[in-house]
Amino acid sequence: MKILFLILLFTNILFSDAVKVYLYTPEINVNNFKSLKTSFDAYLSAFGNYEFQPFNDKETFEKYLKKTNSIAILSSWHYREIAKRYNLEALLVAQRKGYITDKKILVGAKNITLKGVVTSAYDKEYTNDVLSNITNNKSKELSVLKVPKEIDALMSVGFGMSRFALVSKDSFILLQNINPILAKDLTIYYESDPEYRTILACNEIDKEENKLVDIFKNMGLSDNGKNILNMIGVDKLVVFTMQNLKNRGEVK
């Protein structure tokens, strides 16, 4: 009887694997994986056997990606790097405050040289890459201090714990609104080109995976779904159109 039960359990695990969506983005500092996974899983389970799997490092995330039937939520920076390797195609793009792109800026106190500690809420590799790009390789004398949130990075400059902060322009605008006196002493040294926000991408997917993409497309339409998406800094996910690509000159 016991053996029969174990066989049934094993068969169940083997054949009822949930359809999974994987998340990794260097721009989101996930402090509470348990809460993030629980919230997404609870939302998705109402629609079927779906599971959300967040990762906090790039290598492990990539290990789970396959060349077919993979759904991934990732940064546009990472997407550019691995899209060809995993045959990924961007289907949805994150929207926040009405925009599907944002800019990264390097902020510091006025009239200082480009050296010293730069606070950033992003992954170190990503931070160094963005710094090198926006400063035209003049970032060699900057060292990165990772902090939990973009507003921490900005306040660290304002209150003397770092010389510079690498943040999104949205966060700087937020600080200007909340603490204009502190923000007044800061200046933007470098600004990136607009980049797409987080992307939901897939390769060749089956019917169930297609349904999961639709669930994400509609997630921002409900209050509950929007609250959960907000945990990864997203208001809603909108369809990634050919027009998006044309605007960036990526399609002829």
């Binding site: 010293g116 606070t119 902090v147 939990p148 949130k149 209150f159 003397g160 714990m161």
Partner: peptide, 12 residues
């Protein structure tokens, strides 16, 4: 490099 001797915590 010059730094503040005693700093406040940078992360919250």
């Amino acid at each position: 490099e010059k730094i503040e001797k005693i700093q406040y915590p940078a992360g919250t």
